[in-house]
Design a binder for these strands. Structure first.
Lengths: 142, 142
DNA sequence: CTAGTTGCAAAGCATTTGCAACTAG
DNA sequence: CTAGTTGCAAATGCTTTGCAACTAG
């Protein structure tokens, strides 16, 4: 129950802490499944049936711009979101599409500047086949 | 003039070397601008006015699956393509949207396996402001 | 011939936008 | 009050699909 803290956080960022925004933030902080906007919408609607798709997109955009959550473009078809700000990479299974975290030993850095371009953020995406799908493959081909 | 070589390459991959496919491959090999499907279409249409959007998408998909080109998801809105297979990272300017290559000193690797997931590919994406946009900012605020 | 490929138009979907009604402070 | 936010529905734009005509071998 850190609603108070989340309220304060949103206020600091200049965002009115509405029920909808708090719900989105709370959901993202409580999951490690890297949900899409659609999944966020479906989840929040369980408790707040009137929340609209537009509000979810607005909120995800506002939180991303404020730096409270990360926008993940590992998947060509949909954007995913992550409230875990600790440096880590992401892995996507090309069979089932699931996205997992990969701990990094040292933060991935390319330096602050490259050929005059100012680098602000670095993301690492890995692709392959996840453990579950490898097992199914093994069974299928056995 | 390596058309012969490209023909052979496509054949090895089990793809009929059509005029359209050769044109797409040649264009991608000759640019470092990481074009979108739409840019590829526009460019090829200059020489082959009847090529269709569907064929471009088909071809980009086939070439990606064959491993001849890379699909780049650095931009949430559009997929970009790159025929440069040497290990390198990509940088996207959040002001103008341009994508640049970043040479890597050593190939980015996370190992072959992480928690049982088989890692096949690793991509590194950097975000920030490019040299040109930094200069414009400087002029604007001076 | 004939399997694979192309071009066209329509459809599919994730995301964005316009705007009137609402609400936090 | 009033600036900011929400919800709805329509629009946008990238990408995919169905299918008949074409073409490489």
């Amino acid at each position: 129950m850190q609603t108070t803290r989340r309220c304060a956080l949103l206020r600091e960022l200049g965002l009115t802490p509405t029920v909808q925004r708090l719900a989105v933030l709370e959901f993202l902080e409580g999951t490690s499944r890297h949900p899409t906007a659609d999944i966020v919408l479906a989840e929040i609607q369980k408790r707040h049936p009137t929340i609209s798709r537009a509000t979810v997109y607005n909120t995800l955009d506002a939180l991303t711009k404020a730096g409270v959550i990360l926008r993940i473009t590992i998947d060509p078809a949909v954007t995913r979101y992550d409230a875990d700000l600790k440096p880590h990479a992401h892995f996507r299974c090309r069979t089932c599409g699931a996205v997992y975290d990969i701990r990094l030993e040292r933060e991935n850095t390319l330096g602050d500047v490259f050929q005059g371009h100012r680098i602000e953020t670095v993301r690492t995406y890995a692709y392959g086949v996840c453990l579950q799908c490898l097992r199914k493959e093994g069974i299928a081909s056995a």
